[in-house]
Design a protein around this nucleic acid. Sequence first.
DNA 1: ATAATTGCAAATGCTTTGCTTGTGA
DNA 2: TCACAAGCAAAGCATTTGCAATTAT
Lengths: 136, 136
Amino acid sequence: MKNIIEEKCLKKGVRLTDQRKLVAKVMSESEDHPDVDELHRRVSDLDSKISIATVYRTVKLFEEAGVVAKHDFKGNKARYESTTDEHHDHLIDINTGEIIEFVNEDIEKLQTEVAEKLGYKLVDHRLELYGSKIKK
Amino acid sequence: MKNIIEEKCLKKGVRLTDQRKLVAKVMSESEDHPDVDELHRRVSDLDSKISIATVYRTVKLFEEAGVVAKHDFKGNKARYESTTDEHHDHLIDINTGEIIEFVNEDIEKLQTEVAEKLGYKLVDHRLELYGSKIKK
DNA sequence: ATAATTGCAAATGCTTTGCTTGTGA
DNA sequence: TCACAAGCAAAGCATTTGCAATTAT
């Protein structure tokens, strides 16, 4: 698994220090949506000296550079994920906290239409579904 | 303009003190989506002694009773509005902060379908559009 | 009488920041 | 060399909470 975040940073001219490279590595290898504490824990395995302030500063830097995405799901602290090529939204399992990504072009299109109908250009949006697993 | 929140509280058996009645009144008369500071400011005009802690406690109580709705829009503190009969979502003007409510049944239906397709029963959702006004 | 509520200030929890020391895309 | 970054602890901010005093759907 290669460090896609580091690559993107290089492309964008984001200066990469050792600590930032580690955060980039850990985030690139994460399949889930860790919060800052969890990121700090994971990075600490590679560099036990890194401070949580640096992790906070780094995720913010990455977010501003557009290489990672921040999510504030209901009732939780901020979570981060590597930016993907294709836009997606999230369904959160209200019982387990598990996060499932999904794509739905129809909803996307309707959102743009709704905004236009109201006289707005859609710049950003947030769509989160909260549900409980159907047992079969 | 009558105090619809107070009425709903009575119906639900929520004990109403003088302070709670004032918060209910102010929220019932609000057409916007005030945050707790703003609510406190508005209630203070009616009772200069009321503390912000009471406002916090009251909006939480009302929210748990289902008579008001809380919204955490991006980058802002929590905002509140009186619960409406008909569900609606929000479009936020990224330049002015203005909040526009909208209803779209097609999106609602698609959300339920998406959740089901993933094996979930949709319990709750959050849809926010962020846009900038198109000048004509 | 008494269980609930208030006001106040202190405590929380997450995140940011000032400052000094360290570093090098 | 020297602008930028890191580490640490302190500060910020929105919100919650402990507690003594007050109130009463």
